[in-house]
Write a protein that binds this DNA or RNA. Structure first.
Lengths: 236, 236
DNA sequence: GGCGATGAAATTGTATACGATCTTTTGCAT
DNA sequence: ATGCAAAAGATCGTATACAATTTCATCGCC
């Protein structure tokens, strides 16, 4: 899955220790095992992974560059709690870049890619029918992977990395503001997009992609929640 | 200039120590006082800024996330030396996102913004006519700031940050592969884009932007240079 | 009883120390 | 003189230690 990125530059792991921790925490955030706002103290993270605070700190810093955790000076790191405005910007960014990525991907796509894409779709569908937390988490991941795979196919490692950030942050937004308990991502829409690509109807594919993103956004309740933990919470 | 970003989220400095060093080094790289490939040892950076290796290391790590320095395991950090392929991807990414940013910016632009944009243009022109390293560096910065200001006007902090990364990395690419000793960025083209925005001709503005980016790319010599420091260098 | 000040505990910010890896130099043998 | 090998030097990777800041609980005062 990372082959495209490696082809561009000999991107050596460099700091494998912190890298592993970073990836583990990121996965936990994206799969929503860690809720927004959860405190991630350096000591706790270090103890959990059996490393010193130095590495824990480096991992948390790295995650803050991706926007998945916010570190506040002298207060510590927390799983990011994106504001409604930030959520809007994340999806605006996706609407801005994903059609372009789709076009680039379509120009380079191979039959093998399409097969893999359909494979992913199948897996996604299978997980959707299952029940249980584990299946739900895997489904979340699979639905994101669809968008990520398109970015990979596009062959642009920079856009790919950007999309990884956007998809991860989207997961946080959905965890916070998503309403429908059902699947977060319209599954059938992914299939429609593939079909449009196959029939070489790029304009339609882009249109579908925009609708798809808008559809996800529609499911959010982005009203400002001002904590309301004072009196309002009790005066209904 | 960072007002838009701060308005979105209370993005506290968090780690002001490493932050300052990071910004200083980034500025040096973008203004081309540091050449691609230059070694940035943790000790040297630490001594230079009178801090411990810990902070120097954190700053270098941060810069590596932005793609401005590459850290190689057990070997150290170097000012990034983008490959031709990476250079292509950077400009492909800019072609992909800048028209979109331009459209968003045009939708929200105020007369005050336009005034500021023209002010920047004027400054850019003034610097272009001057000679000397200092003026050249300021010109490089100003020409990048034009694109950055559009991103700021667009009101999307995420796209703004991404553009900051792309512009910075573009500077590295131009330093490496740029041919014309003259101004790196077609100055008049910036003015044309503003004019198109003013006359509300968005399609033309986007077209001009694409041409502008392509124009910068044309000035690059992206042929693979395989060091050729062996015999070829002497057998002419 | 509520409210503000003071001090202890916890947590982060930064520096230093030590072990591991890579680079360079030196010395020996061919 | 050349080439390889071993050791010295430099640099990075990680852990630990101490200082600074924040948080929280306790105590006194109103």
């Amino acid at each position: 899955m990372k082959s495209a990125a490696k082809a561009v530059q000999a991107e050596e792991p460099a700091e494998t220790g912190a890298q592993q921790i970073r990836d583990a925490i990121r996965e936990a955030i994206v799969e929503r095992r860690l809720s927004p706002g959860t405190k991630l103290s350096e000591s706790d993270v270090g103890n959990l992974f059996k490393v010193s605070r130095t590495l824990a700190r480096a991992a948390l810093q790295a995650l803050s560059y991706e926007g998945l955790v916010s570190v506040e000076k002298n207060r510590g790191a927390f799983v990011a709690y994106p504001s409604p405005e930030e959520a809007r910007q994340i999806f605006a960014a996706r609407r801005l870049v994903e059609p372009g990525i789709l076009r680039e991907a379509a120009a380079r796509i191979t039959p093998a890619d399409i097969r893999q894409l359909k494979q992913l779709l199948l897996e996604e569908g299978r997980l959707m029918s299952e029940r249980g937390q584990t299946a739900r988490r895997a489904e979340i991941k699979a639905s994101g992977d669809f968008h990520l795979m398109l970015a990979e196919i596009s062959g642009n490692a920079i856009m790919q990395r950007f999309m990884e950030e956007l998809v991860a942050r989207s997961s946080l937004v959905i965890a916070l503001y998503g309403q429908s308990t059902a699947s977060s991502c319209g599954h059938s829409e992914h299939g429609d997009i593939i079909s449009a690509i196959e029939s070489n109807d790029l304009d339609r594919a882009c249109q579908l992609m925009l609708h798809h993103i808008a559809h996800i956004e529609t499911d959010l309740d982005l009203r400002e929640r001002k904590s309301l933990g004072l009196k309002e919470a009790f005066e209904l």
